[in-house]
Design a binder for these strands. Structure first.
Length: 489
RNA sequence: GGGCGGGUCACCUAGAGGCCGGGUGGCGGACUGCAGAUCCGCAUACGCGGGUUCAAAUCCCGCCCCGCCCUCCA
């Protein structure tokens, strides 16, 4: 039974979707006015894993992630760059999605954009005005917070606190400081849309109320985002949606912890924002994903050299185990349990345990660090099994590999092979030793043949030179007796 | 001030009242021409001070420290 921590109740609750077998989830996406940073990556990897686990459990998941493509910051940034704001945000939206794909995050079911839903926003605002929850003030429209009794229920703040923190910015025409904008009258030169209150553009919060209910209905199952969005954004979404529709908006609110950099908050003023693009120059996408998965999604995470280095080594251990298993694995996984000997039966038990322990961990509010433990436990048992068993059952090995990959995939690990070897360097090396072949694999084999002869002749300098050069190029070799295996590291 | 989450071995993380955490790194052993990989073993831990209990990293109280939010934020 999956249990999920709900920010609304501050408790772990059994997860029961609205519709059996289906999960409708919405995660607040990016405001696209610059490249995605590793904080975004953390959040979207976390929700990607959540989505994958739900699918692993057999749910059909409809996963909506919005793109905020109109907003003050976009307009300002576009003006500075001397570009049209909508072109500007479209450009960054594309780049951000590209970054997420490079990270290995699966696409959401849909990435709706704010500017494509202006009509629906206007309708919702009209409804709020009709019902007396919103008012027009000189071309602006504001939500009247005190009209919504439950305001503050998500962030656990009472009205007194909210009022104490609220301010009226210059140019705003709201009646109460705690009110927030649903619609903003256009200033000269800004992108604008026609509305019953004059030309203008939507406030930030309204888009999520509109797009979530448009694609998922209301209420829907899961609404996620970074912890920094709890207040005011998600609080405001609740106010808008529940005031307008008179019913519960979301069943489970999930919030991911913030990412720090070397113990400090990531912020423009500290100048320590790390873009996904830059992070990918230094670290493998899979290493970054492992790093994120090694923290529980609600805990703060700290992006530091040591932790990344640890992750890099840990990932290597997983990859090697995968390779070793793959070498022994046959075509299909339909092994015959009666043909297994004692050792194999013992290993079969370990394979089955992988799944149960993994699920136990993930069922507990997506405890990915705990889930990783089960992977490493399995790796140790696999290595031991392959070491002790001369000719392991091929089908059993295929089954083990498949099971391993199935759970690893949920954690976004051991996915499609990324080319990490430097083919050019290997070919140059081949030329040096007179090995010229079409296929890179043949070049490597040829080099290894030369090395084998060298070893037999006890010409260890040459043997080691080839080994070191291959290692430089991303190929690691392993001598087992007379035989030599190689793998991409 | 209000809300939330933390302080666990050299490093990164998980954690149920009693027994176990895992990864990285280190040390020793097996294997090896060497290296790597792997296996086995070893070490280092629960911010501070009280309390509850036969038993506390875990529950309670107080304190110190850190991070996040409190109308820009993922």
């Amino acid at each position: 039974m999956l249990r999920i921590y709900n920010t609304l109740t501050r408790k772990k609750e059994p997860f029961i979707p609205m519709e059996e077998g289906k999960v409708k989830m919405y995660v607040c996406g990016m405001t696209t006015y610059s490249d995605a940073h590793i904080g975004h990556a953390r959040t979207y990897v976390a929700f990607d894993i959540i989505r994958r686990y739900l699918e692993y459990k057999g749910y059909e998941v409809l996963y909506i992630q919005n793109i905020t493509d109109i907003d003050d910051k976009i307009i300002n940034a576009a003006n500075e760059a001397n570009m049209d704001p909508l072109e500007y945000s479209a450009y960054y939206a594309e780049r951000c999605l590209e970054d997420m794909r490079k990270l290995g995050i699966r696409d959401a079911s849909l990435y709706p954009k704010a500017t494509e839903h202006i009509d629906d926003m206007i309708k919702l605002i009209e409804k709020l005005i009709e019902k007396g929850y919103a008012y027009v003030a000189d071309g602006d429209v504001y939500f009247s917070v005190e009209r919504f009794q439950e305001y503050g229920k998500l962030s656990k703040q009472d009205m007194k606190q909210i009022k104490a923190g609220a301010r009226i910015q210059p140019g705003e025409k709201k009646r109460k400081p705690e009110d927030f904008a649903l619609w903003k009258a256009a200033k000269p030169g800004e992108p604008k849309w026609r509305s019953p209150w004059g030309e203008g553009r939507p406030g930030w919060h309204i888009e999520c109320s509109v797009m979530s209910s448009r694609y998922l209905g209301i209420p829907f199952d899961i609404h996620g985002g970074g912890q920094d969005l709890i207040f005011p954004h998600h609080e405001n979404e609740i106010a808008q949606s529940e005031a307008a529709y008179g019913k519960n908006f979301v069943n489970y609110w999930l919030h991911s912890g913030m990412l720090k950099v070397r113990g400090e908050k990531m912020s423009k003023s500290l100048g320590n924002i790390i873009n996904v693009r830059d992070a990918l120059k230094q670290w493998d996408a899979e290493v970054l994903r492992f790093f994120f998965a090694s923290y529980h999604y609600r805990s703060p995470a700290d992006f530091g050299e040591d932790a990344l280095k640890n992750a890099e080594n840990a990932v290597k251990r997983l990859r090697i185990a995968r390779e070793k298993l793959a070498e022994m694995a046959g075509e299909d996984e339909n092994f015959d349990e009666n043909k297994l000997d004692e050792k194999e039966k013992e290993y079969l038990a370990a394979i089955k345990e992988l799944r149960t322990k993994f699920e136990e961990a993930m069922d507990d509010d997506f405890n990915t660090p705990k889930a990783l433990e089960t992977l490493f436990d399995f790796v140790r048992k696999t290595n031991k099994f392959l070491m002790e068993k001369e000719k392991p059952d091929e089908k059993l090995c295929r089954y083990a590999l498949n099971e391993f990959l199935r759970v690893a995939n949920v954690l976004t690990l051991l996915q499609e092979e990324e080319k990490r070897m430097d083919e050019d360097a290997i070919r140059r090396l081949g030329e040096k030793y007179g090995v010229i072949k079409e296929k890179i694999e043949d070049v490597i084999e040829g080099l290894l043949a030369i090395r084998r002869k060298a070893r037999e002749a006890k010409e260890y300098e040459l043997a080691d030179a080839i080994r070191d050069a291959l290692r430089e190029a991303g190929i690691e070799i392993e001598d087992i007796g007379k035989e030599t295996k190689w793998r991409i590291i």
